[in-house]
Design a protein around this nucleic acid. Sequence first.
DNA 1: GAGTGGTCTAGACCACGCC
DNA 2: GCGTGGTCTAGACCACTCG
Lengths: 229, 229
Amino acid sequence: MAGNWRTIRAEILARITSGVWAPGTALPGEVALALGFGVARATVNRAMRDLAEEGIIERRRRAGSRVRPAPVRQARFDIPLVRRDIEDRGAAYAYRLLLSAVGPAPSEVRDRLGLPEGAAMRHVLCLHLADGRPWQAEDRWISLSLLPEAAAADFSAAGPNEWLVARVPYSGVEISILAAPAEAHIAGPLACAPGTALLVVERATRWDGQPVTFVRLWHAPGHRMTTRY
Amino acid sequence: MAGNWRTIRAEILARITSGVWAPGTALPGEVALALGFGVARATVNRAMRDLAEEGIIERRRRAGSRVRPAPVRQARFDIPLVRRDIEDRGAAYAYRLLLSAVGPAPSEVRDRLGLPEGAAMRHVLCLHLADGRPWQAEDRWISLSLLPEAAAADFSAAGPNEWLVARVPYSGVEISILAAPAEAHIAGPLACAPGTALLVVERATRWDGQPVTFVRLWHAPGHRMTTRY
DNA sequence: GAGTGGTCTAGACCACGCC
DNA sequence: GCGTGGTCTAGACCACTCG
């Protein structure tokens, strides 16, 4: 019985999937398991914590650990920079600026960021292509109150994403995934019929509580986000 | 300087967001940090591991840790049982069986599970409602080679999900999220026009390498999956 | 109150990757 | 090689919560 925590984890998981410890069952305490496996309690703890993070088991002080009756399925998606995403798939990345303006934002954008009416924002509409074919349309709004230099930034060669990443290191984010029909100004660039069902990712970013940017990413028809585990 | 790992983590994060350690920068080694913070190395390790899991920093043996130049944005979504999801939102859950059959599966389903042509499957189409309104349509296929008793299972009162959870404890899963127009047999139950853009979650489940079930979950119009961090 | 998980410590050895 | 992160140990104290 090897003493590494992955082995312990695998062994515990095996006993769960094989039915030795059925869903709802209370697992032995950490001390008991450590003794049984012949390892330190910290090692068992590491394994159990991992199982808990994945939603396999449920842990509570005093009450002990138990197998989750109904597994909380979790899907974790990586959302890299579009450029990386495309290049990682072995395709050639290309970028095209479609629209650039400064002005007041529509209410739906303001609401998502908690901005007052009439707040000036930089608005950018651009297109990311993979091997010359439309991959993703980006509808970007940047608050000028926190990033006034965004008003004059040049987005003709590279997207606002890379510009922002270099300026706003790490921040609070709210991500939504939804389906929406292609609006007129999106259908054109994405080369699809208006009304086509598209996968949309919305992201509202804050830095230190201040609204920074809101983006709506329209993926080309047929796009799917996939994860395995 | 408190000695808990969350404090250490927060302090490191603060130095990153504040620009003390810019993206791409190499962080001090664990020993140095432990000394600086006046804690054990294991505590620093715990904090750094957490930051690495979230994609904030990058760790490699010998090379050390560095701030990720381009943050790998991660979105983690919980996908609970529909019933729980609806009840957690304070709505009344209801269930309706729409179709139940046994027969060969279409090729698109077989492909996702790696099943041979003509393989018999249990097919169930059902509807989940929140406060009486359509919430999600479930198009479910269950392989009879691994679960022959599924042929005779009764899904008139409760959905196949809960039936499966009790039988196939924990297994490998592939999840996809996509947008699709409402097909004719889906639009009716969901009370929307055919062609409406819907958010679809597909899930292919395997147990010990054996295909178990494939499900397509059609969410009602306007549904969005959201996560914050 | 007592038991369980949560965490910290101090020390040690190992494995991997640069040099 | 040799330094860095990865992990394990043995022991300890704490915090929460159930009975």
